[in-house]
Design a protein around this nucleic acid. Structure first.
Length: 327
DNA sequence: ATGGATGTCGAATAGAACAG
DNA sequence: CTGTTCTATTCGACATCCAT
């Protein structure tokens, strides 16, 4: 018997966007070594959908996302970033209809032998409208003797309109595609499109790497905070002394620490952040160069041209033409 | 006493603003 | 476009503080 047809539908098969504020529960089961980018993208999709719904209809959150693991507590991603999870046994709403994503990772091998986890999965499976394994997550389902249950409209359905269509009819869709398709079905294509755009990676510019701090664990909290503050205020006429105050240091000490930890002076960092933003705006918008310069904290279009010549041996308009994207 | 972190001072330099 | 002036930024040298 196909259990999915015995269940109360949430909205997966509704033809028109759902207009109520019904809450859909999304559970994501994690195991050590799970792929953080995929899980983060799924969370981001549902959170973004919630914020857009709240902004447009003055309604409440539509999706309630929970991170679960066999024993709860800290789970390490493949990139050694830790996330906090709830214990699957103690998690509330056991018999509520919900959607379940099962993340992969090396920890799945061990989880396959965990009888307690298998029993939980067997109990939850009948109430899960979608059971979507990610990578090794499929092994866990197989070990428990349970089938996957993908989004019906994505898997074998009409994929031409999907925002992130599966690669073929015989291949299971990606979890991110499924999450987007769920949002599209529940809230409409327009809102799903906005969500998809908001999670799409920003274009790389010649300055992207010089203002990316994520992979620099040796940077102290204060310096990191001041660097973030500089990035967040590229559009304002800020001084290095202001940044030093954010770091709660004297200007001299801030300068010394910033350069030794980040590898460039604060003013150079600020300039690169401004040029990075300028490059993105040149590619993503049709605004005149002068407006872009001013919105990026650069005094004028002429000054931006000077900087482009100095750092990129080109001009803003030439850079725009070379990197033009369809708008 | 020693070494590391931080603060003060002053000179050099770059960039912005402005006048001609 | 060029020259001048002013201001901000950077950096070296040295002093001070504090933990060991």
């Amino acid at each position: 018997m196909d259990l999915v047809h015995t269940l109360p539908r949430i909205s997966r098969q509704s033809a028109v966007p759902m207009q109520t504020n019904a809450l859909t529960r999304i559970d994501i089961a994690l195991f050590n070594g799970f792929a953080l980018p995929t899980v983060a993208a799924i969370i981001e999709i549902f959170q973004k959908a919630n914020s857009l719904v709240a902004a447009q209809r003055s309604g409440s959150a539509r999706y309630d996302v929970s991170l679960l693991s066999a024993a709860g507590g800290r789970i390490a991603s493949s990139s050694s970033v830790f996330v906090w999870t709830d214990d699957v046994q103690s998690h509330r709403g056991t018999n509520q209809t919900h959607l379940l994503f099962i993340a992969g990772g090396a920890g799945v091998q061990q989880a396959c032998r965990d009888e307690r986890l298998s029993n939980w999965l067997r109990r939850r499976h009948p109430f899960s409208e979608i059971v979507h394994p990610i990578a090794e997550g499929l092994l866990l389902l197989q070990a428990a003797g349970l089938p996957s249950r993908y989004c019906p409209l994505l898997y074998g359905g009409n994929e031409a309109h999907g925002l992130y269509p599966a690669k073929s009819l015989t291949e299971a869709p990606g979890a991110v595609s499924t999450a987007l398709r769920i949002v599209e079905e529940d809230l409409g294509a327009d809102l799903a499109q906005q969500v998809a755009e908001s999670i799409a990676p920003q274009p790389n510019t010649p300055f992207t790497s010089s203002v990316t701090l994520n992979a620099a664990p040796q940077i102290s909290e204060k310096i990191l905070a001041s660097a973030r503050w500089l990035e967040a205020n590229v559009d304002r006429p800020i001084s290095i002394d202001d940044a030093a105050q954010v770091a709660a240091m004297s200007e001299r000490n801030f300068l010394r620490r910033f350069k030794s930890e980040i590898g460039m002076t604060p003013s150079d960092y600020l300039l690169r952040a401004r040029l990075n933003m300028s490059c993105r705006m040149l590619i993503e918008s049709r605004l005149p160069v002068d407006k872009i310069a001013r919105r990026c904290g650069i005094s004028s279009g002429g000054q931006l041209s000077k900087l482009f010549r100095k750092y990129l041996a080109t001009t803003p308009t030439d850079y725009r033409m070379r990197n033009e994207v369809a708008l």
